[in-house]
Design a protein around this nucleic acid. Structure first.
Length: 319
DNA sequence: TTCCAGGTGGCAT
DNA sequence: ATGCCACATGGA
């Protein structure tokens, strides 16, 4: 178990296991953390500019590293960061469980070692994943950054860059849809304007208590909001409500489930069933390993990734 | 140029 | 319930 130390503007955790900053911030679950240097990222949590860095103290890069996390922020409540970074969960044990008898997962967990499922703010996650639909990660980041610079609050300057908070519910609920279009959100501008008004009308505090509701209730609430379907709802539940059992299915997960688990590409129910049966309460973590794995493969080793496709085509021909 | 990207809403069967 | 298709935009 780790130890911690803090001051007014700093929180440090020592001896943290199963933690890799790049994998945490770059695995596709969050969009606003920016890499500043090797092993250091900066971003905004709530109202506070924050800088997170990791120093490895033991193990090599191919093993599960042990090291120290340093957070420089006026958000200096260690419990906030423990929850945000999911530090009290034994990811080593989870990886072992998931990998038992599953060579795909063995490779995926190795690839994504040090991933932690963040517990992000519900409102920010909700809007971010409405934006994410039918888009790609670089553009999602751009859209969110523009949205923040237009409607967020400027809280400082860092290395010549203005730093903004994420826009508040009230702010977006009052914005006209036409105005939102200047953020290059495309057709999602309408969804966001409408979603903000709906949530505001429903009393925004539902988002604060949502985590305590059961999965069905949360899903029902989220699905009635404009621009939120099954996939976006799943991501909101997984990345902001601590519902680690939820298994979001997007194009990449469809690909990996099809090519490596041999499930029909459009059989979403079959994939959910498989995840429930084999990944159980850690379905969401498994999903993130798989998502990060297949996406990395397509970027870093296109030949091997394409080979999976070829294998799939060949299988079809055989049948 | 055309195709695709962490899908959803609306409409027709 | 299930199957299409339009929807904005930018990068490959």
């Amino acid at each position: 178990m780790y130890e911690f130390k803090k001051t007014n503007t700093k929180v440090e955790f020592f001896g943290v296991k199963d933690f890799d900053l790049d994998h945490v911030f770059d695995c596709g679950q969050c969009f606003r953390w920016k890499k500043e240097s090797e092993s250091s990222y900066y971003g905004v949590v709530g109202e506070h500019f924050s800088k997170v860095s990791f120093e490895q103290t033991d193990g090599d890069e191919h093993a599960d590293a042990i090291g120290n996390i340093k957070i420089e922020s006026y958000e200096n409540d260690e419990n906030f960061w423990i929850r945000y970074l999911d530090l009290n969960r034994d990811y080593g044990a989870i990886k072992e469980t998931l990998s038992a008898g599953d060579s795909v997962m063995e490779e995926a967990t190795q690839n994504g070692r040090g991933i932690r499922i963040l517990r992000q703010e519900v409102w920010e996650t909700l809007i971010s994943f409405i934006i994410s639909q039918n888009s790609n990660i670089p553009r999602i980041k751009n859209c969110i950054e523009t949205l923040c610079s237009e409607y967020g609050e400027e809280i400082g300057l860092y290395r010549g860059q203005k730093i903004f908070t994420f826009p508040k519910l009230q702010t977006l609920a009052e914005v006209k849809e036409d105005e939102l279009k200047s953020c290059r959100l495309g057709y999602r501008a309408k969804y966001i304007a409408e979603a903000a008004r709906q949530i505001n009308r429903d009393d925004g505090s539902v988002l604060e208590v949502a985590s305590d509701m059961n999965d069905k209730e949360i899903l029902k609430y989220l699905l009635h909001i404009s621009g939120i379907g099954p996939k976006v709802a799943s991501c909101i539940m997984l990345f902001s409500m601590g519902k680690l059992n939820i298994f979001p299915i997007d194009v990449w997960v469809k690909r990996v489930m099809n090519r490596l688990y041999n499930i029909e590409e459009n059989d979403v129910d079959g994939m959910k069933e498989y995840a429930h049966k084999h990944f159980g309460k850690y379905g969401g973590i498994a999903q993130q390993y798989l998502f990060y794995y297949i996406r990395n493969l397509s970027l870093s080793d296109p030949e091997r990734y394409e080979a999976l496709k070829i294998a799939e085509d060949y299988k079809k021909i055989e049948i």
